[in-house]
Design a protein around this nucleic acid. Structure first.
Lengths: 241, 241, 241, 241
DNA sequence: CATGAATGAGGTTTCATTCAT
DNA sequence: GATGAATGAAACCTCATTCAT
C-alpha cells in the first residue's frame, strides 16, 4: 500500500511528482507526531493531522494505511531521531567521570527538548508497546546507549574512579528516570507540589543535584550504603506486583 | 440487576436504598479507574465501565454527569488513596537514615502495587492536568510527603547523618522518578533494552541500587560531587527548553 | 392520578399539607408556562421546570402525569387567564366606536403583555391543537369575544356609525392578526426589516395606525373599496392551498 | 442507495459525481424543511430527515455539520424562495391602488401556499432568530418589499389616490399580519371560534375584507379616524410592555 | 403524601475508513 | 498518483418516565 521506492540505478534527477509525494508524506508524519503527542492514540484525529499537514485525510490513509500504521510510523520516527542523536553524542574517552556527566546531560536535555518523545512513549506504554512490537525497524532500535555505558563503566573501573559491579542497564534506567519523571509528570506535579519543577531554572538546578547523585553512586569511594538489617526490614514490605 | 440488599432478621435501621446507591456509585468508580488506566481518557468506553460495574451506562451519567466527570472522580479516588497511604506511613523518628529508606520503599512499592495510579497520572499529564485543575478536592491533595521529607531532612541534619542544603521537593522528585520510570515505561524499555526491568526480581535489585543512590546523596560525607570544570563543560551542551 | 379534591362539607381550616400541595402544583404550573413558552413543547425540559418551581422532577409527574399533561395544563392556564381578562373588559355600551377602539387596545396590549401566551399558541398550532383538543376545559373556552363583537356591531349598525354586513369573526381575526404578528415574529422581522417593530414606542405608533385601519373599515361611510375588475384580476393569482 | 446517474447516449461532459452530490444535498435540504416545519427545531428528528431524503443520517452531517446547521440551511432556503418570489412580483406601475391590491394578494397567497414558511418562521422566532443571526446570507435577505411599498406609496401619493404620511414598514407589517395570523393560528382558532378560518373559501372571503381594510386605510379621502377623546381614553389602559 | 434511585430507548454527533473515479 | 463523496458502526449523552419505598 505504501509507494515503496523502486528507482533504478540511473541517477536521473528525481521527477518532481516524486519529490512532492515524499514531501507530503513527511509533512503528514510530522503532523502525526504532534497530534499523537498532544492527544494520545485514541484522542488523535485524522482530520487535524490532515489540516496541520496541509493535506487531506484521504492522503493520510493513502500513505499510512490506518491510524495504527500512522502511529507506528510516528513512533518509529521519534525513536529514530533519538537514536541518531545518541549516535552523535561524543563522550570524553579519557575522562570517564566527565563522560558520565556528559551522558546524563545529553539524556536529560534530549527529554527536555523533545516533549513529543515523552508523550509518544507514554502513549505507547499505555498500549503495552503494541505498535513497537509490530515495527520492523525495531531490530535496529536496540539502544546503543547500553553499549556506551558499559564501555564507560569499564573505562572508569580500570581508571579506578568508578567502583565495580554497577549494572549498565540499571544505571541507564536510573539516569533516564531522574530526568524523565519531572518532565513527564510536570503538570500533576505542579498541582500537587505547588511549584513548577520543570521550569527552565528549576530544571537546571535539579539536573545539578541529579548529576551529583549519579556521580556519587558510581564513585569508587564506597561506604556501605545500607546496613543489612535496614535493607532486610524494608524487604518485609509487601511486594505484590 | 442490582444486588438487592440482604438484610438479616436483626432489624438494623440502615437505609437500604442509600446503601445500594453508594455501592453502585462505588462499583462504577472502581470500574472507571480500571478502564481509564487501561485505555486512557479518549480510549475509555462508557459501556465497558458499565459492564464491569454490573450497572448501566445510564447510571454512569446519573452519578458522574459526563465522561470528564467520571475521569475526574477516578483521578480523585486514586489520589485520595495515595494520600491515605502516605498518611499512614510510619517512618522511624529516631533514625533518619532508616526513615529515608522506609520512605523510598513506600513510594516505590506504592507505584509497583498501583499501576492504575501511574497510568491515570500519565493520562492526566497528557491532558495537562485539566481535570485535576477543576477538582475541588485538589486543595486537600497537596501532598503531605514534602512535609514529611522536610522533617526527616531536618532531623538528619541535626543528627549529623545528612548533609545540609538538600531541597525536599527535589529529593522527592528524584526518589519518585527513580521508582516511576521503569514501571511507567516498562513495555518500551523491555523492547529497547531487551530485558524486563520491572519484573519482580529485577525490580528489587534495582530498588536496592536506587536506595543506595539516594542514601549516598543525602549522606554527610561530602566529597565535592562535580569539579567545576566538568560541570562547566557539560553546560556547553545546548540546554534549549 | 391527580389528587382530586374530596373535601367534605365541614369547613375545617384547610390542613397545611394540602395548602402546600396546592402551592407546589401552582409553582410547577407557572414554571411550566415559562419553560414551554421559552422552548416549545419538544424543547422544554422537565428538570428546568422542577428547578424553577423549586420542586423536583418527580413532583411534576406526580401532579401532571406526563409532559403532555403538563403542557395541556399550561395551555389551559393561559387560555383561562385570557378568558378571565376578556370577561373583565368593559366596553362603552353607548359609544360603539369607542368600544371598538377599547376592544382593539385590550387585545393588543394583552398580547404585548403576555408573550408566553403567544408562544404557547404558536407551539400548540405547530402541534395542530392536539393538546387543546384533548382538553376538558375546552368547552368553557369558546371565546366570549365573538359575542361581544357581535353585540358591538349590532349596536353600531343601529346607531348608524357602523356599516352593515361585517362578520364579527372576520373582524376579530383581523384585529388579532394586526396585533399578533409583529409580536410573534418580532425577532425575524427585526432582522429582515432592520428595525424593531415591537419596541414599545414603535408598537404604540403602530397601534394607532392599526386602530385607524379597523375603525375606517367598520365605518358607515362606504366608498366601494375595490372596483370589480381589480378584484377579479387579482383572483387570477394561483390560490393553491 | 443513491440514484446513480442515468446518462443518455449523448455524451454530455457533466461530472456525474458532482451532480449526485448536489442532488443528495438538495434532497436532504428539502426533507429538512418538511421535518422542521412539522416538528419545530427540538422536535425534528435526524433519522426522519434521512429517510425522507432517501439518504442516511450520516450524510446529513456530512453536508450540514449539525442539526443547527441544517436548520439554518432550511431557513435560508425558505427565505431565499420567498425573496425570489418577491422579486418576480409584477405590480402595475400605472395604477398604485391596483398594485397595492396585487401586493396584498401576493403576500397572502404566498403564506397560504407555503405553510412550511410560516412554521419555520414561528420556530425561528421561538429561538429569537438565533439561526438567522448566524446566517451569512442574511445580508442579502433584507426584504425588497419595503422598497417596493415605498415606491408604490410615493406613486400613489403623487397620483392623489393615497394619502400621505403612511409608513411603508408599518403598512407591510399590517398586511402581513392580516394574512399570517389566521394561517399560523389556524388550529387553535378553529377550536376557539368553532370555525375553520383558513378553509379555502373562508380564506378568500376574508382576503376580500382584508384588502378592503388596507385599501381604505391608504386612501386619500381622509375622515379623521379617531377623535382625540377616544384615543386618549383608550390610552388609559395599562400599556406595560 | 412525597421522594431518591433507577432506567430503556433513542437523540445527536463522531470516528476511522472505503468507494469510485 | 491523487481526491471528493460516501458510510457503518458506535461513541457520548439526554429524555421522559417508573420503581420502590
Amino acid at each position: 500500500m505504501q509507494p515503496k521506492g523502486d528507482r533504478t540505478v540511473t541517477d536521473t534527477p528525481a521527477p518532481k511528482r516524486r519529490r512532492d509525494a515524499q514531501a507530503t508524506r513527511a509533512r503528514i508524519l510530522k503532523a502525526a507526531v504532534v497530534e499523537f503527542a498532544r492527544h494520545g492514540f485514541a484522542g488523535a484525529r485524522g482530520d487535524r493531522v490532515a489540516v496541520r499537514a496541509r493535506s487531506s485525510e484521504r492522503m493520510v490513509y493513502y500513505y499510512f494505511g490506518s491510524k495504527g500504521g500512522l502511529f507506528r510510523a510516528a513512533l518509529e520516527s521519534v525513536y529514530t531521531a533519538l537514536r541518531d542523536a545518541e549516535r552523535s553524542v561524543r563522550l570524553d574517552p579519557n575522562d570517564p567521570m566527565k563522560a558520565l556527566h556528559q551522558f546524563c546531560r545529553f539524556v536529560w536535555s534530549y527529554y527536555a527538548d523533545h516533549p513529543e518523545f515523552i508523550s509518544l512513549l507514554n502513549t505507547e506504554n499505555l498500549h503495552q508497546a503494541r505498535h513497537l512490537r509490530k515495527s520492523g525497524v525495531l531490530g535496529e532500535l536496540v539502544s546503543p546507549v547500553v553499549g556506551m555505558l558499559s564501555q564507560m563503566l569499564a573505562d572508569g573501573e580500570r581508571a579506578g574512579v568508578f567502583r565495580r559491579g554497577i549494572d549498565p542497564i540499571e544505571l541507564y534506567v536510573s539516569i533516564a528516570g531522574l530526568g524523565y519523571f519531572c518532565l513527564s509528570n510536570r503538570h500533576t506535579l505542579s498541582m500537587v507540589l505547588g511549584r513548577d519543577v520543570a521550569a527552565p531554572a528549576a530544571l537546571h538546578r535539579y539536573w545539578d543535584e541529579a548529576a551529583r547523585m549519579v556521580v556519587q553512586y558510581v564513585s569508587a569511594d564506597d561506604s556501605p550504603p545500607i546496613d543489612g538489617k535496614t535493607a532486610a526490614a524494608s524487604r518485609l514490605l509487601p511486594d505484590r506486583l
